[in-house]
Structures are given as structure tokens and as C-alpha cells.
Design a protein around this nucleic acid. Structure first.
Lengths: 343, 343
DNA sequence: CTGTTAGCGCGTTCAG
DNA sequence: CTGAACGCGCTAACAG
């Protein structure tokens, strides 16, 4: 059996509660007593029993990270993998553990959020979703557990109550497009994904940049893929004429952009001379491809950090705080695929 | 406050322990009572308080996954990311949660394994390490917590006591090499990594295959990289003459192999006509490169599954089981980079 | 079959 | 400043 506060108490010749207080930095303890208790606890390698602690404090010191179920997609997984690492790295600063979970248990079908919260296994949640589920949102709100949406743009009306951290994709879309415009391009093919959500924002940014520079927006110049490399590749094969008719393309996710580039190269096009390419996300993967992809950088570390910090704020707040919308600005990373270095 | 068994007891008009027993499928309960209790619990959306349960049973229903600290490396992260997904997918079948942790807390320097075990936050561990640390191994052994090493070849003498699941890298090295030999290659450049551990096994397999086919083993034909794409790329640039002097190369990790291929292509070589390439791991990433990489497949799903299953066995065993060494066989995936399709 | 009782290890009054 | 006593929610004897 592991050591308990009682054991330490015995060794130190004090009561169990004195041990508890000493180890919890209670101000009610004399310096001398505390010192002695701490030393003994240290010597014995004592650690609190998390369950007992959790039972009496209602705090577990672990937080749940909820991932979308399509995490199995390779491209998504790539991104989420490094996001998780980032979260871990930050949360360990507060000595918080991290339970990773999918949105629902594939076997029992039970919603992970509800399960984790009701069983009191976590103190708070970081939810990494692109889609929101009204019923779990309602559950979260009435269960008064702190939670932060990471990477999620909630477009219903009731945004005020919730906390979220996300990239300003409108600006991202604007930045990528404007960069190409400034390089002299007028016909810019947009390769996007998903009808709604983040990608719609990116497209709105694209459109706004065009309009701002007095370029007519042509709906025929917007293509849709499913975010994968393969999909980007196939789009080029299927719409070769369209790609022929433009001088630049702005692809709304890097892996897809790489697929586009490879297909373009395979069909004999030179990048950026024949066609300029700009991507979105700035994933490490792009380092493997030539020419190096110019892209809109999503500040992942910042997103993760801000989400964690916000969650920690919520955790330590006496009463529930108001919702906070934290918008992070993307930046443009100019490399070679846009041709800027030739200009 | 959340519902407790006491609340359910009140609603059902029975005692708290009857509720506990009913919900835990105790055989001591009449069908009728159980039915009623279950129904009420269901209606109320009752869930056990994990802390209270853990306190009295000494079981948390969560297991810890320990990742190496170099998880931040992109290439490693790629692999570990999908491994984690796999683990999650399997463990959720037993309703086990999963705490992910690095080997040690970067801030406090505290060993995560010790912390998680002593605080009783986990019932068991899956340790994904390439290096072993004698002190934590000792700790694990005397703390009698179930643990399984995943992907780790412990080469000290005391293997009997521990449980581990790993790929037979000797065979992997052998397979890749023999495939090239059978295609007629005699001078096969080996691009490996790390002096010790897994990679040494792969090299031993390489060497054994050569010897088996009466080909003199030439130590000058073994190069070392650091497993990254970049490193593979640079190796080609630095040792162009060596690559010129062989007809095939066996690269011991896929990302590095891709780097090698890209550099080879950049220097005007045709793959597989001028030089055949075989990789190792079979990561999804290879799908993005031409020609498609022939490689030694590491059965990741199988590794994850076996590790979880073994851990579950250990968890449910009455007394501690003997250590078990589970070796998984890799397979060769023939695609294009080896030239087999041209033969 | 069911209820009563006693812990599990810790935080926290309440007395001194 | 410290100790005794209680309760967090649950499981597990122990009686009936």
C-alpha cells in the first residue's frame, strides 16, 4: 500500500490534518512544523492520492480534450497530433493531466463529454471541433463545467456565453488573396472545402480582397475539395482547363495545396512561372516539397496556449466568467510557390 | 450537485447499497429490484462518481500512455499521432480512459510515470519508448502496476519480467534486403539511424540477408541519418558518389527514404531505373510521392491492439502474470520504387 | 435477497 | 497554531 497522510503524520509525530495543511501550504502552520513535515514527505516520496483528493475537493486536476471522430483521416491527424503535443506542453505547467477522447465512444455510442463530466473525471474541457452539437452544448452550459472551444466558429446566435479560441479565417483568406493580387494576378482560382464554417470564412476573405481591388468575383473560379492531398491532385486532373485559364490559385488547406502542386507539376506546369500557388495552414509537411509553399500561417501554438490559459482562468475563477471570444490573427509566410522571390 | 447512489436509492425506495449492487450487476439482487433501479438510474442519467469509486476500489479505469519527450519532432509525431488514435480506439472498447503524458514534466522535472502511479491516477501504463531508464523500470517493478512497453526492445538481461510488444526488426531488415537481392541487386546501400536499438536490429537483418545470399557485407555501404526527411536528403548530397556506386538503397525509415528519393530525383536519377529504393515503416505520407515507395510495413494497428489486450489481461489478472514478449512480424509492401513492377 | 456499518484518504470545520 | 471528528460517494463485509 502506498503512503498516506496518516503515515506521514505518524512519522512526523503530528496529526493527519497537520500533514494535510502543511503539504497544502496552509497559512495556519508554523514554519518549523511545515518544514519537518515537508522534509519527511519528501524523503518518503509521498504523493497525494488523487481519488481521495478528488472526492473531497471535487477537483481532479485533469482536463479532457475532445477530438473529432474523423481524427483517423491522415491529414487531419497530422494537424491534431501536433496540437495535442502543444496542449500537453502547456498544461503540464499547471500540473494538469490530460485525458484525450473522441467525441463519442464507438462501441457504446455514449457521448464522451457527458460521460467525463458526469463521472467527474475532468475539471474542464478543451473541445476541438469543427461542428457543434446543440444538445451537448446545452448539456455543457447547464453543467457549469469550464470549457473552451478550440478551432471552432460557432455561427449561431448564442455565442456570448461560450469561450472559444480561433483563427480569423476571414483575414487569412484576405491575406492570401491580396498577396497574389499584389503580385499582379487577376484571375485567381480558389480551391476550398466544406460549404460552411471556417472555409466559408476563408472564401469570404478571398472575395473581399478581390472586391477591394476592384476585381470582379467569378463564382466559376471556386472549386471544392475534401481537404486531402488526393483531392487536390484529382481536382487538377478533372479541371485542367480551369487551371490553364488562371495565373494563380489559392488553396485553402496545405495538404490539398501540395496535391494541387504535384498534379500541376505532373501535367508539365512550372510553379510559380506558369501558375502561382498559395496554401493555408503552414504545416511542417510542406518542407518536403519543391518549390516551397507560400502559405497562410495558422498560429497553432498560440491557439493552444490561449485556449489553455483561458481554461485555467475559468478553472480558478470563483464564479463562472462571461464567455470570451479570442480571435487569433494568421500571417502570410512568403516562400517560393507564389513567385514573389522572382519579382 | 450531481446525482449520487443515495439519491437514486431515495427515488427507488431502497438502500444505497442496493443501488450500488444493482448497478454493478451483483448476483445478489432480485431481477425486479435491479430492473427498477436500473430504470431510474437511466431516467436520471446517473453516472458513478469516478473519484469515490476509485477511492474504494483502487481502480480508476484510466490508463496512462507515456510518450518520449522528442515527440515534438515532426517525423516522430506523425507516427505517434496515429498510434495514439489507434490506442484510443481500442481502449474505449473496455471503457478505459487514457491520460497522455510525456516522460517527464518539463517544468518540474518530475517523472510522469512515478507521479501518475503514486497519485493513483492510472491503473496501468503503456510506455512508448525507444530508450529505457533503469530507475523507472525498477520503480515499475516494485510498484506492481501493470505496464506494457510498446515499441521497445529491451536488450538488457532482465527481459523475462516485463511485458512488451514490438516489431521483429531483424526480419524487417532481412525482408527489405532480400527483396532487392532477388531483383538482382548486389551492391545495396543501407541508410540507417541510431547506433543501438531497433535500427541495429534492422541492420543485422540487412547483413544476414546479404550473407545468406553469399554477398560480402561492406561496412562502407552503411550510412547513418537522424531519421528525418531532411537528413535523408542531405545524405544524398553529401555522398553522391556512394549512391552512384550502387544500384539500390534500403532506407530504414520512410520519411528519410522520401528525403533520399527527392534528392536522388533532384540530382537527375531515375527511380527505380537508375537506383531502386526500399523504405521502412509504411507511413501514410508515402502516398504523396512518386514513384510510390516500396517499404517494410510495420503493423501499427496490430502493435497497438496487442499492447492494449495484454494490458487488459494484466489488469484483470488476480495476481501478477509473468512477463510476455510479443513479437509482431512486419511485411513487405511492394510498390514502384524498387522496380519490381518492371521486372 | 436486502439494509446497516465501516472504511478508502483527504480536506475542513470546530474546539482548544 | 494544532488535533479530533466528520463527510465526500462508493464498495464490501456483516447481519439479518
Amino acid at each position: 500500500m502506498a503512503l498516506t497522510t496518516k503515515d506521514i503524520a505518524l512519522l512526523a509525530g503530528v496529526s493527519q490534518s497537520t500533514v494535510s495543511r502543511s503539504l497544502n501550504n496552509s497559512p495556519l502552520i508554523s514554519v518549523e512544523t511545515r518544514r519537518r513535515v515537508l522534509q519527511i514527505a519528501e524523503e518518503q516520496g509521498f504523493e497525494f492520492n488523487a481519488n481521495a483528493r478528488g472526492l473531497s475537493t471535487n477537483r481532479t486536476n485533469t482536463i479532457g480534450v475532445i477530438y473529432p471522430d474523423d481524427y483517423l483521416d491522415h491529414d487531419v491527424s497530422l494537424y491534431l497530433g501536433s496540437l495535442l503535443t502543444q496542449l500537453r506542453k502547456i498544461l503540464e505547467q499547471w500540473d494538469l493531466d490530460l485525458i484525450v477522447s473522441f467525441k463519442e465512444n464507438r462501441k457504446t455510442g455514449i457521448d464522451s463529454i457527458k460521460r467525463l463530466v458526469m463521472r467527474k473525471k475532468v475539471d474542464g474541457l478543451i473541445i476541438v471541433h469543427s461542428q457543434s452539437d446543440t444538445s451537448t452544448l446545452e448539456f455543457l452550459e447547464k453543467s457549469d463545467i469550464p470549457f473552451v472551444f478550440l478551432h471552432f466558429y460557432h455561427n449561431s446566435g448564442k455565442v456570448e456565453g461560450i469561450n472559444q479560441v480561433y483563427t480569423d479565417h476571414f483575414t487569412g483568406g484576405y491575406l492570401g488573396t491580396e498577396h497574389l493580387i499584389k503580385l499582379g494576378h487577376r484571375r485567381i482560382l480558389c480551391v476550398s472545402a466544406d460549404a460552411e464554417g471556417e472555409y466559408a470564412q476563408r472564401r469570404r476573405g478571398y472575395q473581399a480582397a478581390l472586391e477591394h481591388h476592384k476585381i470582379a468575383w467569378d463564382p466559376a473560379l471556386v472549386l471544392f475539395g475534401d481537404r486531402t492531398f488526393q483531392s487536390g491532385y484529382n481536382l487538377v486532373l478533372a479541371h485542367g482547363d480551369l487551371f490553364d485559364s488562371v495565373t494563380a490559385t489559392f488553396v485553402h488547406t496545405d495538404t490539398m495545396a501540395l496535391g494541387v502542386m504535384e498534379a500541376l507539376k505532373a501535367t508539365g506546369k512550372r510553379i510559380p512561372q506558369d501558375i502561382a500557388v498559395v496554401g493555408y495552414d503552414d504545416v511542417e509537411l510542406t518542407a518536403y516539397f519543391q518549390p516551397r509553399l507560400t502559405t497562410v500561417h495558422q498560429p497553432r501554438e498560440e491557439l493552444a496556449t490561449l485556449a489553455c490559459e483561458r481554461l485555467v482562468q475559468l478553472l480558478s475563477a470563483k464564479r463562472s466568467l462571461r464567455g470570451k471570444q479570442i480571435k487569433v490573427q494568421p500571417t502570410l509566410v512568403v516562400r517560393q510557390s507564389c513567385g514573389a522571390h522572382l519579382a
